[in-house]
Design a binder for these strands. Structure first.
Lengths: 193, 193
DNA sequence: CCTATAGGGTACGCGACGTACCTTAAAGGC
DNA sequence: GCCTTTAAGGTACGTCGCGTACCCTATAGG
């Protein structure tokens, strides 16, 4: 019997357990004791690997979602942008999103953790997707060349995130998404001519 | 001696104490026991008035800052907007801002608290200030009439807030503010013609 | 085979929230 | 001017969860 797990194997078991706790109880409910119990080990093994709960939470998050990056190509900038926002809205309002938002809040005062989050949550990849989307629009002649600017690319998602922060709640109505596109993104692109 | 304080008076003493704790130790350091001790009372009196720490924190926050709303009038939209952003940046990066951000994080999962926050932090007033700023620009003929749109008015501040969330930390370089104005707000206003 | 390393078990210190219960002062009607 | 109701003071406690300390035991790898 026995076969005491070590190294890699144990580590995966812990992350797995943590991820399940995250899914079931959210970040607030993911206690170290419960993770240890669920992984069939003890807190020692955890603290030898991660310095505190937040670090474990973030590490475990990747086990939840392998964040598929959308890459819509509807033929118009408006269509693409709306699609991106809708996908993001869906993701963020899912249980996943709740976990992610809780983690973000927990990491808010630790730059190191924040950086980790950005990596794991695919924020950078997301930004690049928006940029290439804009470049396609430029190529189609739908937008002036100067429209493919990083600041422009990140604006819609930032507005969406700010919207979450405003409302308590994790689902933004579709009208808001449309408004972000029609009242901000498109005029903005147009105005950069 | 005695003169046991009651009602109003005691309430103010508690809020005062809580505000001082907030200023000195931040929200994380504002414990119920310490507030009670500092106010020269006990937790009973506190819990009879606020259901939990977060509520007290939010209530106390107003004692910290009577949030003076800036209302720059530099003669140009660009100047006004930059001034607004700079003021906001300064506020948010002050110790005040740290408290405010901590409170926001703590209230993130409770819509009722969030609503309270919005009130107390003057967010709505801020939005109105931006809108009237835009209206002045319209009146000067500096912007098309459709530029004075709520979504436009809230965009710069939302971008600033998102910037805080991104970076860990509480001071955004001036270049970013300039970029928000030059690369987003002004083109956006122009593009709405 | 034997030793260094890492996992298992367990207990504990500590801080902080929120609650329970009783005592005591103050307000306000009669 | 008493007396009841209400609210404050005092204090102790239950609970939870993080992080740490210790000591025992299996296993890897020389």
């Amino acid at each position: 019997m026995s076969t005491r797990r070590r190294g890699e194997e144990l580590e995966r078991a812990i992350l797995q357990a943590a991820a399940e706790e995250l899914r079931e109880s959210g970040y607030a409910g993911m206690t170290m004791d419960r993770v240890a119990a669920r992984a069939g080990t003890n807190k020692n093994a955890i603290y030898r690997r991660w310095p505190h709960r937040a670090a474990l939470g973030i590490a475990a998050y990747r086990h939840l979602s392998d964040t598929v990056m959308p890459n819509p190509d509807t033929g118009t900038l408006r269509g693409d942008a709306l699609e991106m926002l809708r996908q993001a809205n869906e993701t963020w309002s899912s249980p996943h999103g709740a976990v992610l938002r809780a983690l973000l809040a927990a990491a808010a005062d630790d730059p190191a953790l924040l950086a980790l989050m950005r990596e794991r949550s695919g924020a950078d990849t997301m930004d690049r997707a928006w940029l290439t989307m804009l470049e396609r629009a430029v190529a189609r002649g739908e937008a002036p060349p100067t429209a493919a600017h990083p600041r422009v690319a990140t604006t819609p998602m930032m507005l969406l995130r700010a919207e979450y922060a405003m409302r308590g709640i994790p689902s933004v109505p579709d009208e808001v998404l449309i408004e972000i596109v029609d009242e901000v993104l498109l005029p903005l692109v147009r105005g950069r001519a």
